[in-house]
Write a protein that binds this DNA or RNA. Structure first.
Length: 158
DNA sequence: GCCAACGTTGGC
DNA sequence: GCCAACGTTGGC
C-alpha cells in the first residue's frame, strides 16, 4: 500500500464536499500535469491512503484522510469541449489524462497547517515536496515515515 | 492583489 | 534542442 497527498481548493471542492458525496466518493478529474498523471495512472492502487490538503485558502494545510477507491481510468472531462479541463489533444482512442476515484475516510481532529509542517522542513519532513518553496504538484507521494510523522502531529496540542 | 516558482509552448 | 515568453499555482 502507498501513501499520497492530494491538494484541493476548499472553495471549489473541499473535504466536506467529498464527505457529502454519494458513497463519500468522487472521481478526481482535472489533473493536467504529467508528473501527477503518471503517479495516478502507474502507482495508485485502491486502498492507498491520502492526506487531504486544502490549498488557496485562509489556512492551507492537511485537513483529513481519504483513500483511493478505484484503479485509474481515462478522465473523460478531457474530451468534453464544454468542460473546464477540456484538452483537444487528448484522444479518446489514446487518452492523455487519467483519474482515480477518491473516498472520504475522516477529518483530522485539527488542521495541520502548512506553516506547522514547514517547521520540520529541515528535520523529519526534509525532502517532502510540499514543504519546498514553489511546489506546484497537486499529487505527491508520501513515505511511510512521513505519513506516521505527520499524523502523530494530530495528537499534539498546537 | 502580488509575485516567485516552474511547467508548457512555440519560434528558431 | 534551446530558451524566451507565457500561463498557472498557490502562499502570503
Amino acid at each position: 500500500m502507498n501513501y499520497w497527498l492530494m491538494k484541493s481548493e476548499p472553495d471549489a471542492f473541499g473535504l466536506d464536499d467529498l464527505a457529502a458525496r454519494p458513497d463519500r466518493t468522487e472521481p478526481w478529474d482535472g489533473v493536467r500535469n504529467y508528473q501527477a498523471r503518471n503517479m495516478l495512472r502507474d502507482a495508485m492502487r485502491p486502498g492507498d491512503q491520502i492526506l487531504f490538503y486544502h490549498s488557496n485558502c485562509t489556512v492551507p494545510g492537511v485537513v483529513g484522510i481519504a483513500e483511493v477507491a478505484s484503479d485509474a481510468y481515462p478522465d473523460s472531462t478531457a474530451f468534453d469541449p464544454e468542460a473546464k479541463y477540456f484538452d483537444p489533444k487528448s484522444d479518446p482512442e489514446k487518452p492523455r489524462w487519467y483519474l482515480v476515484e477518491v473516498r472520504y475516510v475522516r477529518h483530522l481532529k485539527r488542521t495541520l497547517s502548512l506553516a506547522e509542517l514547514k517547521a520540520h522542513a529541515d528535520g523529519a519532513l526534509a525532502g517532502f515536496p510540499l514543504v519546498r518553496n514553489g511546489n506546484r504538484l497537486s499529487v505527491m507521494p508520501v513515505t511511510p515515515e512521513q505519513w506516521d510523522f505527520i499524523l502523530a502531529l494530530e495528537s499534539e496540542t498546537d
